[in-house]
Amino acid sequence: MIRSDILDLMNMVMKKRGREPLADEGQSTREAGFRSLDFSEVALRIESKVGRELSFEAASMRQIETVKDVLDFFEEAIKG
């Protein structure tokens, strides 16, 4: 999975929740309305695409502030 696939999944979740698509990587997740449960849903969708579980601490989720942080986080998690 590449970065744009992850962004697509994020936008799929945003659309499902009736929210505007994410504008750019610098956008704040809080302002965009991308919540922690949305983050979890993206994680689960990535898990089913890569065929394995991604487990991580809640502390790492709490450090996320921007769309870029989410993409970086999942890129790293996928590398394992």
Binding site: S36, S40, A43, L44, E53, L54, S55, F56, E57, A58, A59, M61
Partner: peptide, 9 residues
């Protein structure tokens, strides 16, 4: 613990 259950191995 500091993990949501769905992300806990």
């Amino acid at each position: 613990q500091d993990q949501l259950l769905m992300h806990t191995d």
